[in-house]
């Protein structure tokens, strides 16, 4: 046990590390730095860049200088609003996922082991099913003349179809539906380690069930809840498919804004790179908070 550095393969360590360092370093890390550089370059028409350093892309994101760029700068709200919409849509999706995901995870954790495996498998499968197909299915389902409206009309619960497509509600539904498994799995992983004798002790001391849930269970599984929230929040914030397929042009989120800069001839690569950097910074802030939180509380766990 002591000689950890004398394993059979220790001598090969650097050779074994090389492929992943090379592939991820070259194909993920260095591109992010190049993207950072691009966000300070000048745009060329028809996509691409001119190697002149400028703050124009960030300027365009935050400031409005009029059509010809000669007016005194004002705050430009268009993109800040898109960014803000992405944040609150992602927060709302996280909250909804938590409201459905936590009880589900709790319920699964209280099943007998064999049933637990089946439930867990059922929740995991959609996680791996193509996100595009899942979003298209949602679009099919909630169209004006889709099955949900048809069914509600047929049962007489509504007299006119509910218009959902191209509304913020449809985008929200799409995000929530896309990332729900991301919440259930980490919360379940934490629930699995929770010792129910704590709940029994609380009951013996005359705590009500909901008091126990709020003051004993939830604090115990908080790391799992936070991990789940981050796993839902980050992809929701950068989502492209849900706002694009379910939201249409009026419900742009930052993912759709970025995509637009790199498609077709109207693209502005430095601006797209700047918007990506702003999104990445927001995500890194969330992750920094998470590692900070983990280093504060996580050590006792292991």
């Amino acid at each position: 046990m002591t000689g950890t550095s004398t394993g059979v393969f220790s001598g090969l360590r650097n050779w074994l590390l090389l492929p992943s360092w090379l592939v991820i370093g070259v194909l993920v890390l260095s591109p992010v730095f190049i993207m950072l550089v691009y966000s300070f370059l000048t745009k060329e028409f028809r996509g691409g860049v001119i190697w002149d350093f400028t703050l124009a892309a960030y300027d365009q994101f935050f400031l409005d200088r009029g059509l010809f760029g000669d007016e005194p700068p004002k705050m430009e709200w268009t993109y800040i609003n898109i960014f803000w919409r992405s944040i609150w849509q992602a927060l709302l999706a996280t909250l909804l996922c938590l409201l459905i995901g936590f009880p589900t995870a709790y319920f699964i954790a209280t099943r007998p082991p064999s049933a637990r495996t089946v439930w867990l498998f059922m929740v995991t499968v959609p996680y791996w099913v193509n996100l595009l197909i899942r979003t298209v299915s949602m679009k099919f389902l909630i169209r004006d003349n889709g099955p949900v409206n048809e069914w509600l009309l047929a049962t007489g619960m509504i007299s006119e179809p509910i218009h959902l497509i191209n509304t913020p509600i449809a985008v929200q539904l799409g995000l929530f539906y896309s990332y729900l498994p991301f919440m259930v799995l980490p919360v379940y992983a934490a629930m699995e380690r929770y010792s129910f004798s704590l709940s029994e002790a609380a009951a013996d001391l005359y705590a009500s069930k909901w008091f126990t849930l709020w003051h004993i269970v939830i604090p115990s599984v908080r790391p799992g809840i936070i991990a789940g929230c981050i796993l839902v929040f980050i992809p929701s914030m950068g989502a492209f498919l849900a706002p694009d397929l379910l939201g249409g042009a009026r419900n742009f989120m930052i993912g759709s804004l970025i995509e637009e800069q790199f498609k077709g001839t109207a693209g502005n690569w430095p601006f797209g790179a700047a918007a990506s950097m702003i999104l990445l910074s927001a995500v890194l802030l969330v992750l920094l908070y998470y590692t900070h939180y983990q280093s504060k509380t996580g050590i006792a766990k292991n």
Partner: peptide
């Protein structure tokens, strides 16, 4: 690749 939003990886890779 799991932490960075996929669209950011996509943009970075395209630019690269």
């Amino acid at each position: 690749p799991l932490m960075v939003p996929e669209i950011v990886t996509a943009v970075a890779t395209l630019i690269f």
